[in-house]
Design a protein around this nucleic acid. Structure first.
Lengths: 112, 112
DNA sequence: CATATCGGCAACCTCCTGGTTGCCCTTTAC
DNA sequence: GTAAAGGGCAACCAGGAGGTTGCCGATATG
């Protein structure tokens, strides 16, 4: 099952949220979300931080399952992985649903 | 406008994600998402951390706009605020859309 | 009024995070 | 084969995050 592989990677919602909770990582991920895999050097070119810093961010994204990497020759290519977004949306939906239910209960109570 | 008030509070997506990127805060928020406002003492009762720690987490959630507080007598009540969830969902959607577009472009390219 | 309850403030501690630098190994390019 | 490019590893650093304790002010409660 899909969620098993995610869980096996240890990526709970909090981990995924935490991985997204950084401007730099968010921008890296947004850039990768066009489906094109990019090398570390390629991703570092447009930023003002070091290649090493970019590498660390990419590792965080990878451990959260938001990105996958593969070594090709001397470069390692990083690619977007959409699966955790499903997880996240499910979480947001569950919270929103509980909220909406509370609202509608309140409404029926008031209307009584 | 709604997003203005959010922006005025300084809550960009990264901030909101960061606020959600902690197990304790996530659980506090989930508990509050039933629509019932709770006092700090009430929220601290079910946790194993200090009331002070809970207070700090609540402040983080409040600055991210995920929660609002009001002082009533000697207690301060914290209540769930759904607005940032809209913001978040919009962000997730934008990334997903870009991803889907990339996929469909790839598909038409392959089919050519 | 005396006392418990609720909560703010401040200091402090530890560990993690984001970032840097230096060095070295491997792979490509000339 | 030599040089340049890509990237890993490790050490290091400053600051922030999560948490604690101690104390004190204000509000309810008997």
């Amino acid at each position: 099952m899909l969620s098993d592989r995610i869980a096996a990677h240890g990526a709970n919602p909090a981990m995924i949220f935490a991985a997204l909770g950084d401007r730099t990582r968010l921008s890296l991920l947004t850039r990768l979300s066009d489906g094109q895999a990019r090398s570390i050097a390629g991703l570092s070119a447009d930023t003002d931080i070091t290649r090493q810093a970019v590498t660390k961010h990419l590792r965080v994204l990878e451990e959260a399952g938001l990105v996958k990497s593969m070594r090709i020759g001397r470069e390692s290519q990083f690619a977007f992985k959409p699966e955790p977004f499903v997880e996240l949306r499910a979480y947001l939906d569950s919270v929103s649903r509980q909220w909406d239910d509370a609202l509608s209960r309140l409404r029926t109570f008031v209307e009584d």
